[in-house]
Design a protein around this nucleic acid. Structure first.
Length: 505
RNA sequence: GGAGCGUUGGUCAAGGGGUUAAGACGCAUCCCUUUCACGGAUGAAUCACGGGUUCGAUUCCCGUACGCUCUACCA
């Protein structure tokens, strides 16, 4: 075990959008693999045909791509243990299920779903377990002849694990330490379904073995079924080959109780999925962090800090730094509530520390959507540098800087009107004249001249700055006025002053 | 109902037998800035509760409460 190559896997079901918690599971898998020169595998767990959703698999890979968490082996880029889709591995599982029956650790069960439904209805807290299996229709209650007969007649059956009546199973979890279970308390889970597909329980064990997985990370919701998996490992491959388990804490909703769901995002107005997900059956789109204007660096960083930290005060980590710093021992045991405000703060921080060139192409589409065409990248970069500190999300660049590219649509004249007078009017009329004569055009000289003029008119510069700002940007926001004037240029500056003067008269 | 897991400010959290119980987000007030933002400052926790062990417990042990997860031919 000690010298075994590190191989980890993320095993999603392609049934819909990729949830925050899912991405975090990917991230922890990825960090651990990269830190140990191991491999990160993505295996698609599509054993439930009834839940198959077209496009969901491709969508998952798109999300991983966006996050920069690229698998070493997967259905799309292949690998030595292909196929990586469980539906394509269907024949493999049955032999293991039969092996379990042979060894006496599993049995055929012929109860129909309706019969089980009936039992659950009539018997309170019905469990298919060591106490009740004799009253059910299976190879334990039937005679060997009857079983053979049914099998020969192609009566549908499932294969169930025969949980020991009373045995203690311990799970050595890397996060939680030793967790013990009494096998008698778990029911005889179905291992192989009537359609010949394995359930998660069988598939995960078989594939983790076949794919030589060394460490298995998964959500805490799987902890209660760990004894089934451990027993299966013991029966089939030996405990010494079993991967080390790590059950990750859950991500909880910001308010109320329970784990974070897609619904919470819709209710509270924030994304829960990594990227936009459109349900093919309804056509409804659920927004993702990407489309909402998050940088992948920030998204990944934020996720890492939900349930883990390295003990220092550092909160901003690049993926490379995360790989260096990550440690399973420092993963929390308790669930963490998701805080969208903090998520935005991470994005803001990344917007500041990354050069704008790095993400300028990502903000362009938002400008396009607003009808603003960017034809000068240098100018865009210059503007972005001016406004980035007041942006949290990518679309904020549009609201914060549209006036750099076009004349403001609305001028908040009400903000000027109250204190407007003839003297100020006079000042701006003369300002226009001066600006028209200006030979140089930079923020510093603009400001100097403006203040000198104000002094000559016996006006305080402060009283004039706000009107000037309103003229140029349309409202009370934005960077320093003279930086704006310098950036938009002589003609636009003069035009905007004139325009507002007209509105005021 | 049962089993498992968890519980440090509103949130993320550091810490760990003796401390003024870090820091971040958010919030409030103030400073800077005659815009917005950034930046800076200040403020807010009887460490879920009750018993032990101990000279001393938020830290160790046991209970209780509360919360979460699971309890499908779903993963």
């Amino acid at each position: 075990m000690e010298n075994k190559k590190v191989r980890v896997r993320f095993a999603p079901s392609p049934t819909g959008g990729l949830h925050l918690g899912g991405v975090r599971t990917v991230l922890f898998n990825y960090l651990f693999a990269k830190q140990n020169n191991g491999s990160f595998i993505v295996r698609i767990e599509d054993t439930d045909q009834t839940r198959f959703v077209a496009g969901a698999e491709q969508y998952i890979f798109d999300c991983l791509q966006w996050c920069g968490l690229i698998p070493d082996e997967s259905p799309v880029n292949g690998g030595p243990f292909a196929p990586y889709r469980q539906s394509e591995r269907k024949p493999i599982y049955k032999s293991y299920a039969l092996e379990l029956i042979e060894k006496g650790y599993a049995y055929y069960a012929f109860d129909t779903p309706e019969q089980l439904e009936e039992k659950r209805k009539t018997i309170p807290n019905f469990q298919y377990n060591h106490q009740t299996r004799k009253q059910c229709i299976n190879s334990l209650s039937l005679s060997p002849e009857e079983v053979l007969e049914k099998l020969a007649a192609n009566v549908p059956y499932v294969i169930r694990i025969k949980m020991p009546e009373h045995e203690t199973v311990t799970c050595n979890d890397m996060i939680r330490g030793t967790v013990t279970f009494d096998t008698g308390l778990t029911d005889d889970k179905v291992l192989l379904k009537a359609d010949g597909m394995p359930t998660y329980h069988l598939a995960v064990v078989v594939d983790d073995y076949l794919m030589q997985i060394s460490h298995a990370f998964r959500g805490e919701e799987w902890l209660p079924s760990a004894p089934i998996h451990i027993l299966l490992w013991k029966y089939l491959f030996g405990l010494d080959k079993m991967p080390q388990w790590a059950h990750l804490p859950l991500i909880l909703k910001p308010d109320g109780n329970g784990k974070l769901s897609k619904r919470d995002g819709e209710r509270l107005g924030f994304p829960v999925f990594a990227m936009d997900w459109t349900d093919p059956s309804t056509g409804n789109t659920t927004t993702g962090f990407k489309e909402r204007g998050f940088l992948p660096e920030a998204f990944v960083n934020m996720l890492a800090m939900l349930g883990w930290n390295n003990g220092s005060e550092q909160e901003i980590f690049s993926l490379t730094e995360l790989i260096e710093n990550f440690s399973i021992e420092r993963i929390h045991k308790g669930g963490a509530r998701f805080d969208y405000e903090k998520a935005k703060w991470f994005n803001h921080s990344w917007l500041q520390q990354l050069p704008v060139q790095h993400y300028a192409d990502k903000v362009k589409p938002y400008f396009e959507k607003a009808g603003i065409h960017i034809n000068n990248d240098n100018y865009l970069h210059q503007v972005m540098d001016l406004v980035k500190e007041r942006c949290q999300l990518l679309p904020d660049f549009v609201t914060q800087s549209s006036f750099f590219f076009q004349h403001p649509e609305q001028i908040d004249t009400a903000a000027i009107n109250g204190k407007w007078n003839a003297a100020k009017q006079q000042f701006f009329v003369e300002l226009i004249r001066n600006l028209e004569l200006a030979t140089s055009w930079d923020a510093e000289n603009l400001e100097k001249d403006f203040k000198e003029m104000a002094a000559a008119h016996q006006l305080k510069p402060g009283e004039l700055m706000l009107p000037f700002r309103i003229m140029l940007v349309g409202g009370k926001f934005g960077p320093h006025v003279f930086d704006i004037a310098a950036a938009i240029g002589q003609a636009a500056t003069i035009h905007r002053i004139k325009h507002t003067l007209q509105l005021l008269s």
